[in-house]
Amino acid sequence: MNHYGDELTLRLSGIGDTRSLDDDAALTRFMRELVDRIGMTVLAGPLVGTEAGPPERAGKSAVVILAESHAAIHTYPHLREIFVDIFSCKPFREADVLDEFHRLVGDYEITERTLTRRGEEWPRDLTAARRLWSSQRVPG
């Protein structure tokens, strides 16, 4: 790999079955199964939080800190939507991610999708990385 890692962001709309989108236990299980399926190592989490408010803003957020980086989702049951962000320095298959969401909610439509190669200028040499970090650091 000639870059640091890949970041997959998705917006899933028209969610077929929204019941699990407002269920802490279901989302905790899902996040564990998702990162296991894509071969990542959990360092912390899953952590699930609730966003209260009007229906267009109410939902759940779930995040897992990974040895390889992170995975996060934001659910909006009333809007039948999920936002997804998976960033990893270890390669993963997008098809596995999509399959896990099908298992969670059934049918959905991908209304936004971005796969970004992150860190293409990331130095492989630790000495060079330290120099780069030091040169860009704002004195505090």
Rank of each mutant, 00 (worst) to 15 (best):
112 E>A: 15
95 A>E: 09
135 S>F: 03
37 R>L: 05
33 E>H: 01
134 S>W: 03
105 V>F: 11
72 A>N: 10
6 D>N: 14
91 P>K: 09
4 Y>S: 01
77 P>W: 07
99 D>V: 07
29 R>N: 08
98 L>V: 06
29 R>Q: 05
99 D>Q: 07
61 S>T: 12
111 T>F: 14
34 L>M: 07
140 G>N: 08
61 S>V: 12
95 A>S: 14
19 R>K: 15
93 R>H: 15
102 H>R: 11
134 S>H: 05
122 W>A: 02
18 T>E: 15
58 A>Y: 04
81 E>C: 07
74 H>E: 08
69 S>M: 11
62 A>Q: 09
81 E>I: 13
20 S>A: 14
38 I>Y: 05
43 L>W: 09
21 L>I: 00
57 R>E: 06
38 I>F: 02
96 D>Q: 10
100 E>Q: 11
107 D>P: 01
70 H>F: 15
3 H>M: 00
72 A>C: 13
6 D>E: 15
8 L>V: 07
27 L>N: 06
36 D>C: 00
114 T>A: 14
35 V>M: 02
59 G>H: 06
107 D>V: 03
118 R>K: 10
119 G>A: 00
122 W>P: 02
74 H>S: 14
131 R>D: 10
29 R>D: 02
74 H>P: 03
94 E>L: 08
104 L>Q: 02
127 T>N: 07
115 L>S: 08
73 I>G: 13
119 G>T: 00
114 T>H: 14
17 D>M: 08
24 D>F: 14
